[in-house]
């Protein structure tokens, strides 16, 4: 039992625990924080897999930028405790059942050769060779140059879309302000 196994085990338990805590947390702010922990654990797993670059991106983009954005929105909407009752009959037990079945099915699929290809022995040599950011950069800017550029376009569109969606029209603003000034709020 090498150190790697120990670290993997710790990270696996952490990520599963935070994930479960996230989906069962009553408070959205707690959920966001559990999610950050989960992302961190996964980032560490990337390191373990020999991809420090992706680990860094994961921390920066996910745990940093995206989760902060989530936190913003949660704060903007105010705390909204999840209701205890479920009004769609059978939704809760079915959701749990389907989740378990899916997990069972996917785990079963891992050992199916057609689905996974190679069952997987990773050599140190492969890790050394592929783990470097330069190798990734080379692939990205040579073979995947066009998709890379298209992705930048996609981000731009996403940005514009977010602005358009979140922007309030002037008359909307006025309509909202008027009752607020005289209202109980």
């Amino acid at each position: 039992m090498s150190a790697q196994f120990v670290i993997f085990g710790l990270l696996a338990v952490t990520s599963v625990a935070t994930a479960l805590a996230m989906i069962f947390s009553r408070n959205a702010v707690h959920g966001v924080l559990f999610m950050v922990g989960n992302f961190a654990a996964v980032a560490l797993l990337y390191v373990l897999l020999g991809s420090p670059f992706l680990a860094a991106v994961q921390i920066l983009v996910y745990a940093g930028a995206i989760m902060v954005l989530f936190l913003f929105v949660v704060m903007l909407m105010g705390p909204e405790p999840a209701p205890l009752w479920e009004h769609i009959p059978g939704q809760r037990p079915l959701a749990l059942l389907f989740g378990l079945l899916l997990a069972a099915g996917l785990i079963a699929a891992v050992n199916v050769e057609e689905l996974t290809g190679v069952p997987g022995i990773m050599s140190q040599e492969v890790l050394e060779r592929l783990g470097q950011p330069t190798a990734l950069a080379q692939t990205l800017f040579e073979r995947y140059l066009l998709p890379f550029e298209v992705t930048s376009l996609l981000l731009l569109i996403g940005m514009i879309g977010a602005v358009v969606l979140a922007k309030r029209e002037k008359h909307e603003l006025q309509a909202e302000r008027a009752p607020r000034e005289g209202g109980a709020e």
Binding site: M1, S2, Q4, F5, F8, A12, S15, V16, A19, L20, I23, N38, L45, L48, L49, G99, L100, L102, A103, L106, I107, A109, V110, N111, T116, V118, P119, G120, I121, M122, S123, Q124, L127
Partner: peptide, 19 residues
Amino acid sequence: MIVPVSYYLVLGAILFSIG
């Protein structure tokens, strides 16, 4: 000794199902 890939895949499957 390196952790075999199937461990990661199982972990991924569990996380996905939780999602």
